[in-house]
Design a protein around this nucleic acid. Structure first.
Length: 582
DNA sequence: ATAGGGTTAG
């Protein structure tokens, strides 16, 4: 190794400056060569700069070679390489470096541990995350702002929300910054705990930290409002976003499109979307998803055409959503054409979900033979095949094709798994044929086999407060329960004349305990929850006002018919692939 | 001074 001459001693800062600005492999390699020539390449500082530069341009094998050849490595050398692997989507290599580092006696610092924790978050690996948390505790940096924030995220991604909150609460109040709050809000939103997110957001606003909500927090809270269909709060958060100057933020706009559509206001979704200047893939896809939900097939097709014209490439999610839109608006042949043109026109390989959507589309239309052909052609295996055949089974029941139902039922039973959705469809089919004993038998066998199904519920927001109804129980109507019973009686007389078969007046006054929502009887022969929510809406909302209610399960056809009599918007904030009636 | 945390569509 040549000793650096006096003439090159001033050269190094210049070369390091070059490295910092370099983002392409060629210029990093050129500077590396110059450093070698000047005899500075092997100093720890230069090597670390080179490691960072190679990592920045994704040249991880170069970085690794350099790292392996280094005589000395400090915490920055190890951490730089770890973060390079993390950025290259190689979380396992990041973690094995953490182990190697520990083994070589170099102590990790806050940067090392926050990098490790964020990698565990991406892996959603609870076991690894716990190890990193333990190491952080040993190194006394588990309460560091950045480390703790990464741990909050890690526990959230692993589904351990309470542990996230414990880490969040364990941070000293001044250590919590906007990112920490954003991470905790996101954890609640991502784990379907919308009301907890809303609650925490309210706490931030009365907190004395003086933190101002940023677009990360706002989009998480909007997504939380979408998840629990809290329109009133969602509108407030929309207002806050505008006041805080986020009116032109695309991420916020997407969250709003999604929120309004899940709260029953497609028109608002469309307004928000139309204000986006150059919508990219995700805004386009989110408005198409919304259009699909409202059965606006033509609209979804127009949006697809528009994005292609503007040079925005649709992806598999976009096309699946357009197919859903076709399915929900009876454009069966158009939807099938989309499936056939995925590869040729859009360069996309059809996924199991595309086939399942197409099979479902044919099934709804009663084209069951074609649906069977397509299901066989798809050659799908595993869990996804179960979904496909189960959807076909439902369609057979709906169209009273017992011959084909047996065939599809065989395929489903081959998986040797209990599918609550299919059984619910079966019991509903019995119930609609008036065979309530058989229907109840299906439910009790489900209970015996330990198959649990979320009890169906519907809710309606009045003056920003959600009122939740379960089948056969009207506790939530409070002091107006008796009035509601009378109203439902009246309503029942009216719609029976139109052929509605459900029972409205037989709701029991309940204190809302679990026992009162007996699945064997309440759900099957009691009053569907959407009817209760409708009755409550009729009672408390001004006459003529559109009633918007939310459900967690798909509505049955009888209720659907009944609802056509009144201007009503019903949405399911979750995925609508589930079956059943509540 | 070379390394670190949170957000949007199915």
């Amino acid at each position: 190794m040549a000793a650096p001459s006096s003439s090159t001693a001033t050269l190094t800062p210049v070369l390091i400056h070059l490295l910092r600005g370099a983002s392409d492999l060629a210029s990093v390699a050129a500077t590396h060569a110059k450093l070698l020539k000047a005899g500075f390449a092997s100093t720890l500082a230069s090597s670390n700069h080179l490691l960072a530069a190679y990592s920045r341009c994704g040249a991880m094998s170069r970085a690794r070679d350099l790292f392996d050849g280094m005589r000395d490595r400090n915490v920055i050398s190890w951490t730089t390489l770890m973060s390079g692997y993390a950025a290259s989507g190689r979380p396992r290599d990041t973690i094995s470096l953490l182990r190697g580092m520990q083994f070589s006696g170099v102590q990790p610092n806050v940067v090392t541990l926050s990098t490790a924790a964020s990698v565990c978050a991406r892996l959603a690996d609870e076991g690894l995350g716990l190890q990193v948390h333990a190491r952080a505790a040993v190194a006394r940096c588990a309460r560091d702002t950045v480390v703790a924030t990464a741990l909050v995220d890690m526990y959230g991604k692993a589904g351990r929300v309470e542990d996230s909150r414990a880490v969040f609460d364990g941070m000293a109040a001044p250590a919590r910054n906007a990112v920490s709050w954003g991470a905790m809000l996101a954890v609640y939103a991502q784990n379907a705990l919308g009301n907890e997110a809303i609650q925490l957001f309210a706490e931030l606003r009365t907190d004395d930290s003086g933190l101002v909500p940023n677009h990360f927090m706002l989009s998480s809270v909007m997504s939380a409002c979408a998840g629990v269909a809290r329109l009133g709060i969602g509108k407030c958060v929309h207002g806050a976003a505008l006041r805080l100057g986020h009116g032109n933020n695309e991420v916020i706009a997407v969250a709003l499109v999604d929120m309004y559509s899940k709260c029953g206001f497609y028109e608002y979704s469309r307004k928000v979307f139309d204000r986006i200047e150059q919508p990219s893939l995700i805004p386009y896809t989110s408005i198409i998803v919304a259009a699909a939900k409202y059965g606006l097939g033509r609209c979804a097709l127009a949006l697809l055409g528009e994005m292609v014209d503007r040079g925005v490439q649709p992806n598999d999610v976009t096309l699946l959503s357009v197919m859903h839109a076709c399915s929900h608006s009876g454009l069966v042949d158009t939807g099938l054409q989309l499936l056939r043109s995925l590869q040729s026109k859009y360069g996309l390989a059809p996924c199991p979900s595309h086939y399942t959507c197409a099979v479902d589309m044919l099934g709804r239309a009663g084209r069951l033979e074609e649906a069977f052909e397509l299901a066989k052609e798809a050659q799908i295996e595993g869990k996804e095949a179960l979904l496909l055949w189960n959807s076909l089974l439902s369609a057979c029941w709906t169209h009273k094709r017992l011959d084909l139902a047996t065939l599809a039922g065989q395929r489903v039973s081959e998986f040797n798994q209990d599918v609550a959705g299919g059984l619910v469809v079966m019991s509903n089919a019995y119930a609609s044929a008036g065979q309530t004993d058989n229907a109840a038998a299906v439910w009790s066998s489900m209970r015996q086999r330990g198959i649990r199904k979320d009890p169906g519920c519907s809710w309606i927001e009045v003056k920003d407060i959600p009122y939740v109804f379960y089948a056969g129980a009207i506790s939530c109507a409070g002091t107006r329960a008796d009035e509601m019973l009378m109203l439902l009686d009246e309503l029942e007389c009216k719609i029976r004349e139109k052929g509605y078969k459900g029972r409205l007046g037989s709701a029991r006054v309940s204190d809302g305990h679990e026992d009162d929502r007996d699945e064997g009887k309440g759900v099957m022969v009691g009053v569907h929850s959407e009817i209760l929510a409708l009755g409550f809406g009729l009672l408390v909302l001004p006459k003529g006002m559109t009633i918007r209610m939310m459900k967690n399960l798909r509505m049955c056809s009888d209720c659907h018919e009944a609802f056509k009599k009144r201007r009503t918007v019903v949405t399911d904030p979750r995925d609508d692939l589930g079956g059943g009636c509540g």
